[in-house]
């Protein structure tokens, strides 16, 4: 990222009146409609800066993602499996809604990823298909929902899994961590967890009473304990 883009990103977070920017698609629309905003009295500079910032986000909304690591066949399996892990629910979207598979694919080709990790991912997916073929005569993608769940039920809880399932358990632990990492580090994931930080917050003055009460602690008790400690 260039310094300008960083500045733009920072300013957007600092500005009280910055418009909410939900995604790249909206940013592109913003850029196309800048004159319209001007006519409506919008601050064009802010809109452009916001759009420039969002431009730097992974470009996955409007264009078909081209995988760096997964083969087309693996990619279908990965996307399907990812949504078994993190489906849509009352709180938020699914793993594929949050582009978690794209994140996993991207990071598998990262400079910090070992060949052993890449092999474990590729081999794990192959194991999953082999397991499905032995049981149902078809791949994971080709299996029915009930058949897929039968396999997942055998590998998703390590402590309950049969020793013969150890390869599948190891793969699934790894895959679940990767998808969770991608999902919860996304904007959708932040909202799901109700993470409300990463903001310019000069008036922060401790945690709310609802949070301290839950832990059975209080600032008054803390102040008293410190004072007692000093006097002892």
């Amino acid at each position: 990222m260039s310094d300008h883009e960083i500045d733009a990103a920072r300013d957007d977070h600092l500005a009280d009146d910055a418009p909410e920017i939900p995604g790249r698609r909206d940013a592109l629309r913003l850029m196309g409609m800048a004159p319209v905003f001007a006519a409506l009295g919008w601050n064009v500079t802010a809109a452009e800066r916001a759009a420039r910032f969002v431009e730097t986000l992974p470009a996955t909304v409007d264009t078909a993602y081209v995988t760096r690591f997964f083969t087309p066949r693996e990619w279908r399996t990965v996307r399907l499996l990812a949504d078994y892990l993190i489906p849509r629910d009352d709180h938020s979207g699914s793993a594929t809604d949050a582009k978690a598979p794209e994140f996993v694919d991207y990071m598998l080709m990262d400079e910090t990823t070992s060949d052993a990790s890449r092999l474990a991912m590729r081999g794990g997916l192959a194991w999953l298909d082999t397991e499905c073929r032995h049981r149902f005569g078809t791949s994971f993608v080709g299996a029915t929902d009930a058949q897929r769940r039968a396999v997942l039920d055998d590998i998703a809880w390590p402590k309950k899994a049969a020793p013969a399932m150890s390869v599948g358990v190891a793969f699934f632990n790894r895959f679940r961590d990767s998808i969770a990492s991608g999902f919860y580090s996304s904007a959708i994931g932040w909202k799901d967890l109700q993470y409300v930080g990463n903001v310019f917050n000069p008036n922060w003055n401790g945690c709310p009473e609802s949070a301290t009460r839950k832990l059975g602690v209080s600032y008054a008790e803390y102040d008293a304990a410190l004072a007692a400690q000093r006097n002892s």
Partner: peptide, 28 residues
């Protein structure tokens, strides 16, 4: 801030791992 590596190792928590809506509830 949830970033790279967020919420890894969920199978070590009392829920024991899993998948689906139950897993999402556990992460939360």
């Amino acid at each position: 801030q949830p970033e790279y590596g967020a919420l890894g190792g969920i199978q070590n928590y009392p829920g024991g791992g899993g998948y689906g809506k139950q897993l999402k509830a556990d992460y939360r």
